[in-house]
């Protein structure tokens, strides 16, 4: 018995890789959804976003491109699908990012808009990218139209007929919440966008950098965050909890990726435990042999 278990001490790495591949790959073909515990950081930002009044907009700084799409895409899509479902108006910008960032966000906006029948210019607007943080953040808080004279499609931001959404929007007082979605969002948002602190700040960032956001959440400078894929999945489940079947989760990545993620974690955890079992078994077997 110990002798057999002792083999667990030296499992070939190919076996581990294969199991990992299967555990992560298989759930894509099955429709499994796991219930999950929603971390307080995600719930807080969902609630602020969900309670946006009609005269305010949600400001999203979407700086991600291909490099971090594994995590930021699900986050962005979870957020945008919620906004489109509720008909909350939102403004997408990019600050100091890859010039392709607006292209990535626009693709998702359009897909979700088609799903819920929302209209560009009325329900959302993409303003493209600017450089010059952190000073430009302060200018956005004062007057967003002066920073972006034209939107990503070339319409003037003062043109009320093409972009009615921006008509009542000037600065910080008109934003319900700022979402910064990228691999590692800049802490400068908390200080510069609205020095009076009226606009709550929320980050959607890679799981690995979330470690450093906790102090800012406990100090109240940040309202909350979406941590990696888990955050996106939690956000989706919060929307589903509230709006039920009206929420079309087809094609959303968060909830879908959470299952393989959980199984991947499980494979790692299982192998850590098996490795230890193997080590103990080998020691026992070795002792037995020597006697």
């Amino acid at each position: 018995m110990w002798g057999w278990l002792a083999r667990l001490d030296r499992v070939p790495r190919q076996t581990i890789y294969l199991l990992m591949f299967v555990a992560c790959g298989l759930p894509f073909f099955l429709d499994v959804r796991l219930p999950l515990y929603v971390w307080p950081e995600t719930r807080a930002v969902f609630e602020v976003t969900d309670s946006t009044p009609p005269n305010k907009v949600v400001l999203i700084c979407s700086n991600w491109v291909q490099g971090s799409q594994g995590e930021n895409w699900p986050q962005y899509e979870a957020l945008v699908s919620h906004l489109m479902l509720r008909g909350i108006k939102f403004v997408v910008i990019a600050v100091d990012s890859d010039p392709l960032a607006p292209q990535f966000s626009e693709r998702i906006n359009e897909r979700q808009a088609a799903k819920y029948g929302r209209e560009y210019g009325k329900d959302w607007v993409n303003l493209g990218m600017v450089r010059g943080a952190p000073l430009i953040m302060a200018s956005i808080g004062r007057n967003i139209k002066s920073v972006f004279p034209r939107d990503y499609r070339g319409n003037s931001t003062n043109d009320a007929s093409k972009l009615p959404i921006l008509q009542g929007v000037t600065g910080a007082a008109d934003f319900q919440i700022l979402w910064a979605i990228e691999y590692q969002p800049s802490l400068d948002w908390m200080v510069w966008l609205d020095p009076a602190g009226r606009v709550p700040v929320a980050f959607g960032s890679a799981g690995i950098v979330t470690t450093s956001w906790y102090p800012y959440i406990s100090s109240g400078q940040m309202k909350g965050m979406m941590a990696g894929i888990r955050g996106a999945a939690e956000y989706e489940s919060l929307v589903r909890e509230k709006y039920g079947s009206r929420y079309d989760q087809e094609g959303l990545r968060g909830g879908r990726l959470l299952v393989p993620l959980a199984f991947g974690h499980l494979v790692i955890i299982a192998f850590i435990l098996l490795g230890n079992l193997g080590m103990v078994a080998k020691r026992r077997a070795g002792k037995g042999g020597s006697r």
Binding site: V11, M20, G67, G70, V267, I272, G275, N276
Partner: peptide, 27 residues
């Protein structure tokens, strides 16, 4: 170039599993 970069990055998930298996022993 983009997909190759992502793929190399994703190798880390496999490496992480084998490294954890080998290293996290209660020695």
């Amino acid at each position: 170039l983009g997909p190759v970069g992502s793929t190399i990055f994703s190798l880390l998930a496999f490496y992480l599993a084998s490294a954890a298996y080998r290293a996290f022993r209660i020695r």
